[in-house]
Design a protein around this nucleic acid. Sequence first.
DNA 1: CTGTTAGCGCATTCAG
DNA 2: CTGAATGCGCTAACAG
Lengths: 353, 353
Amino acid sequence: MSNDKNNNTSSRSTGRVTLSDVAAKAGVSPITASRALKSPDQVSEKLRVKIYDAVSELGYIPNHAARSLASSETKIISVIFPSLSNAVFPDVLDGIHDTLTPAGYRILLANTHYATDQEEGLVRTLLEQSPDGIIVTGIDQNENTRKLLLSTNTPVVQIMELTDSPIDMNVGLSHFQASYDLVRHLQNSGYKKIGFIGARMDPRSQRRMEGYKHAMHETSNMNERYVLTSQSNTSFKLGAKLFTQLFIECPELEAICFSNDDLAAGAMFECNRRGIRIPEDISIAGFNDLNFSEELLPPLTTVSIPLYEMGKKAAEYLLHKIVNREAPSSIQHDVGYSVIKRSSTYSDLKKRK
Amino acid sequence: MSNDKNNNTSSRSTGRVTLSDVAAKAGVSPITASRALKSPDQVSEKLRVKIYDAVSELGYIPNHAARSLASSETKIISVIFPSLSNAVFPDVLDGIHDTLTPAGYRILLANTHYATDQEEGLVRTLLEQSPDGIIVTGIDQNENTRKLLLSTNTPVVQIMELTDSPIDMNVGLSHFQASYDLVRHLQNSGYKKIGFIGARMDPRSQRRMEGYKHAMHETSNMNERYVLTSQSNTSFKLGAKLFTQLFIECPELEAICFSNDDLAAGAMFECNRRGIRIPEDISIAGFNDLNFSEELLPPLTTVSIPLYEMGKKAAEYLLHKIVNREAPSSIQHDVGYSVIKRSSTYSDLKKRK
DNA sequence: CTGTTAGCGCATTCAG
DNA sequence: CTGAATGCGCTAACAG
């Protein structure tokens, strides 16, 4: 069977099998082949089978760019995270991924490395892909980025935090409130001299610190000496270092809240090394409830955030708006948090101390 | 200045500003506008400035799909990982991201959740995007997936492991050899009764187990009772559970190698809880050298892998092949590993025991 | 250095 | 249920 019809290679063709090739092989028009793939029930079974056969014989793979151009749907969702090394984001991403992939969407990932000044450029790049939806981390986009995001008709979800003026839709929680609640819990347990250690000081960390300060002020226990922050990136090592620094400076401290579990765990390891007892000599609290936090010795008091669910909800918001062409009835979702009380802090300081 | 020319909205137009709009505003032909953006030095400064002005006034954002269709370059690299929750992959991804993003490429991410049977479908989906390059995890693609990947002209890099028959290019290391070396180190330190605990048992874990077994056989110390594996996903909790199970069954064990650091850390926490001393009562070794492993008490003996560099190298391979249209002189790169000796194992068992 | 022409591969629109 | 014509927005190829 000499098949000399392959001379349809114009100078610009990529050589890849096209829908026309499939149609020719199946003896139908290209549009029928197209329909057989997109809406099979609009094509008679006879032709459908022929077309499917041609597809698999030829090894046809649709060209996404052509499809997008013709239909102005890309089936791409852009996601902007500050970092993936920070263990919280992979969990959020999993939630997004697991919701979007079954719906036929692909995820285009970008990473700011916490360099907020690069966010605008990144958003611009991502918009070139004409994504069907965008998920951005946080609520602190600069004015230009906001405008960019608003000027497209693309649905946008801001995640991680809650804001009064969302760009579009919003899924998150109040880090301020969560941190405040944690500190109030400690205070109710009898703690007065509570410190705060934070690193990287991204917006979420900032807000957690504000929550801490608010609780301390409210009870007239606020003391600036008890607060230590670093712009360096979070790590176990840094947690150990900052802890040592603060505890030497302020040995009277009864408890220290860390802006995340990594830092807190680092401090706990340091305590173990130096024979400092937790919670007897110093109590420790973290934030995020990472998978190891329950296993630490002693288990770490912290704040748990439904990360996977947050990603899932954000993806669902997007899907809703894409499919129905209008926002869901609610455009903001508070995923909440829970203060997880474990034995790195006392539930009743006086009783035990 | 009445500007009534905006009636060029045909029924199919998306309404977005196009390059033609820019060209019209700048008083040049579309192709000149195109060139001003892609290769500025081919356009006189006079026109270039006019065009840039028009771009920013109109807020023009290029349409990626149209560009891809016309140029058959998508500037997209697809990356397939089994998981992001597994801390090793974010590090690899960072290396990929940091290399590709400055070069103008975007990352399309897919996640198999270790469901290898879904890999073929995922690859097919990703190929629809006509990526300029593909990075896949591991070397165990099934026959169909291999064929798919081979049938495209897209550059492919298999990462994490080394193989004799790469699909295209290959960056990784021998997990067999790494694990073997770790066990030999323990044996040279005087250990004889060494156990192995593994979970998830993905191909890398399998090969680490094989390396362990090989070393044990070689020294006639292999004992199937000393090996415990689980298909469940890796976690700290599981590490604790499996450790307890194996150590009760085989209290004569002198050391246990875990298929990764998470499992090993979980076991160490369990030891701490139960008052089992490390390394006196049992020595512990892990794999991956995660960021917390050095901070554990005692610091964990493990194998370090250059994850970031592996991602970087894979991305560089891709870029080389895309730019030069031919593979780099070497198509395989061994990133190596190093056995990290810390105090969760003795360097000389007899001297101390 | 600039413009004209044509086409990338597919899906929408409108007819039958 | 099927098809013809047309265009999505951009750039390669070839002039001038």
